[in-house]
């Protein structure tokens, strides 16, 4: 069975937010909310600095607390390659999942349900890349099935050094950052 993952090359990413804008228009994410965002993390003292730029979003965790804690089954593993989704009509807006996500990737949609990145399931189903991946002007985002060794993402993870966010939390994220 497929296991979709996103691989983002922090060496090429310039933090331009095109991925955020694209998500906004593609999924018409409500004003003043974002499903993805950029973290600029710098270390050192001027001028000896190192800057890591990360385009972040739901990590579609292998071991997702948001799904475990959901009282209604609204948060669930979709059949499509382990993507984590929310059934709007099952969601009570109890916010347990918001509180349980170590990445604060979720928010409450003004309509009342828990909202977050869907890995653009509606596009992936059609064999397209997620919107953010498809616009990235630096081509630093990759999307695909990590179960498939021939896939670009698998090759990148095999050949490059990478990190995931807060591995200590034990969530087993599926957004990988090449460093």
């Amino acid at each position: 069975m497929a296991r979709y993952a996103m691989v983002i090359d922090t060496k090429k990413c310039v933090g331009c937010m095109d991925c955020v804008v694209a998500c906004k228009t593609e999924n018409n994410v409500p004003e003043s909310f974002n499903r993805d965002w950029i973290n600029f993390e710098s270390i050192g003292k001027f001028p000896e600095l190192h800057l890591e730029i990360r385009s972040e979003r739901c990590n579609h965790c292998e071991n997702p607390p948001c799904v475990h804690c959901c009282p209604t089954g609204a948060s669930h593993f979709s059949k499509l390659g382990g993507i984590i989704l929310v059934h709007h009509d099952l969601c009570t807006g109890c916010k347990a999942c918001l509180a349980s996500c170590p990445y604060d990737a979720r928010f409450i949609n003004p309509e009342g349900y828990a909202d977050k990145c869907t890995f653009c399931t509606h596009r992936v189903e059609k064999g397209m890349n997620p919107a953010c991946v498809s616009v990235c002007p630096t081509h630093c985002m990759y999307f695909g099935d990590i179960e498939d060794q021939q896939n670009q993402v698998s090759k990148l993870l095999a050949s490059r050094k990478y990190i995931t966010l807060i591995p200590e939390a034990g969530t087993k994220p599926h957004v990988y950052y090449l460093i």
Binding site: D9, V14, S42, L49, L51, T138, H139
Partner: peptide
């Protein structure tokens, strides 16, 4: 920007002169 990223991918050596540690500087 697209070509700049391509150059980064191809490991071009980059020299940035700026009073501010710009995004480019970080590359």
């Amino acid at each position: 920007v697209q070509e700049f990223a391509e150059a980064i991918e191809k490991d071009a050596s980059i020299i940035v002169v700026d009073p501010r540690y710009s995004i480019a500087a970080s590359k």
